[in-house]
Design a protein around this nucleic acid. Structure first.
Length: 269
DNA sequence: CAACGGACCTGCCTGC
DNA sequence: TGCAGGCAGGTCCGTT
């Protein structure tokens, strides 16, 4: 579910409820996520107030004066603000209970997500330290430079978080369509000019998706439980066999690097 | 290094 | 109706 726009939508939704608020308790119902939920949370957070929230790639950081909670929503995670006495449902694994009778609740059916704790500067955490730049700091020359010598498909190249963070499968497909680049083309064979086009397509697609509240395919909901509306704007993702909105050809579907790629062979070269 | 496959986990859909 | 198989928004890790 969550790519960068969904994480950003979640961050914007929860920030007003958390910033400056104080944690009363931490409830862990099932700590078996990708890694075990940090056991320190239960002793470190009660009585402490939230000093800041931010996003880095698809990671969501909740900062306290003495450390940071690092969330990753994996494939199926979502965070919601609810009254703290709301009965939990099946995959509601964790609550940060706040002193004003609200709570931040993590739901994650597939349990690919993560909830970690660090006392070090958040960006020095091993999971964050080697991330590439945010999409809004990426320009064509940088991509072109980094692609030199790489035979890997350009789609896999831009989905690599060391190249650029936040470009998951939906938005990789959409950005490549918008830029007119075939997803299987070797990264090193894309010209500098076309990388400039791709960099701006990535930014525009992500901005549009954020403004639509993210993409809901099956179950993404924002912090208030509402779906995102970008799915209706998708040009290629999930549209295999349907007609291209630009040229009328059939959208193709194949696997590239073990992920589904959707593209138009007329519009993308 | 780069590139690839496997691993983690549950739910949903399709086809027999 | 049941069941096997394939697929899904991510990304770390081990092996070539």
């Amino acid at each position: 579910m969550p790519e960068l726009p969904e994480v950003e939508t979640t961050l914007r939704g929860i920030t007003p409820y958390l910033l400056g608020n104080t944690v009363a308790a931490v409830r862990v119902r099932d700590g078996r996520l990708r890694w075990p939920v940090a056991p320190e949370l239960r002793r470190e957070l009660p009585g402490r107030s939230v000093a800041g929230l931010r996003r880095r790639g698809k990671y969501l950081l909740i900062s306290f004066e003495h450390g940071h909670v690092i969330f990753h929503l994996g494939m199926s995670g979502s965070l919601r603000i609810l009254p703290s006495d709301t009965p939990p449902e099946k995959h509601d694994h964790l609550d940060l209970v706040l002193i004003n009778a609200l709570c931040l609740r993590l739901r994650d059916p597939r349990r690919f997500g993560a909830v970690l704790w660090t006392r070090e500067p958040a960006l020095t955490h091993p999971l964050l330290a080697n991330l590439g730049p945010e999409p809004w700091d990426v320009h064509g020359d940088y991509l072109h430079q980094r692609a030199q010598g790489r035979r890997q498909a350009v789609k896999s190249f831009i989905m690599n978080s060391k190249t650029v963070v936040g470009v998951g499968n939906i938005y990789a497909n959409e950005s490549l369509f918008a830029a007119g680049i075939h997803p299987a083309r070797p990264a090193r064979s894309v010209s500098r000019l076309r990388y400039a086009r791709l960099a701006s397509s990535i930014r525009r697609v992500l901005d549009d998706a954020i403004n639509a509240g993210g993409t809901t395919l099956r179950d993404f909901v924002d912090s208030r439980g509402r779906p995102g509306y970008f799915a209706q704007d998708l040009e290629v993702y999930g549209r295999g066999g349907l007609v291209c909105h630009r040229c009328g050809a059939r959208i193709r579907h194949k696997r590239i690097g073990q992920r589904s790629a959707y593209f138009c062979i007329i519009c993308q070269r």
